[in-house]
């Protein structure tokens, strides 16, 4: 992905030299034209067309914002309820992610979800230990994490 972006930058610079106009506008139009030619020959590269990755990052960003709002609302509900009915506990979550930044992102996102908090990561980096405000629905929390966050992060790094 980074290589394609760099290549796109070089193509935009080439375009500026071609039309002999060194302004931000000509850089942008060159970038757009370079993007088009990269798209035309996208199967040339081993990785997929990099705009898909950028789209995946944007999707991840929106998931982050949504979860941040939901988490705070859930905490508000817990605080304001007159009786404390929740049962705290710690459960393990086996992750399929391998890269360091992926695990870090997943851990940060889990911490921001309603009622869960990453406590520790196992030495072989395959299991996350998560503290839940309500251990009774841990199974559901695992499913939620697997289907929303892990999938979105995998989509970025594919």
């Amino acid at each position: 992905m980074a290589l394609q972006i760099l290549f796109n930058f070089i193509l935009a610079l080439c375009w500026m030299f071609l039309i002999n106009d060194y302004s931000a506008v000509s850089f942008l139009s060159g970038y757009a034209i370079g993007l088009f030619s990269l798209f035309l020959l996208r199967r040339f590269f081993q990785q997929r067309f990099y705009l898909i990755n950028i789209w995946a990052i944007i999707v991840l960003l929106f998931i982050f914002i949504k979860e941040l709002l939901l988490a705070n609302l859930a905490v508000l509900k817990t605080i304001l309820s007159p009786t404390l009915k929740n049962k705290p506990g710690i459960f393990a979550f086996k992750t399929e992610l391998t890269a360091d930044w992926e695990i870090t992102t997943l851990a940060n996102l889990i911490t921001l979800t309603p009622g869960t908090l990453v406590v520790d990561i196992s030495d072989d980096r395959s299991t996350l230990y998560i503290h839940a405000v309500d251990i009774d629905d841990a199974e559901q929390a695992i499913n939620d994490i697997r289907h929303s966050f892990e999938k979105a992060i995998k989509e970025v790094s594919r």
Binding site: C14, W15, L18, I19, I33, G34, S37, L38, L40
Partner: peptide
Amino acid sequence: TKIACFIILLFSFHIFLA
């Protein structure tokens, strides 16, 4: 070829628009 064909494409777009 990997590099050159992109530059030729860019130049052809330039020629087209000019």
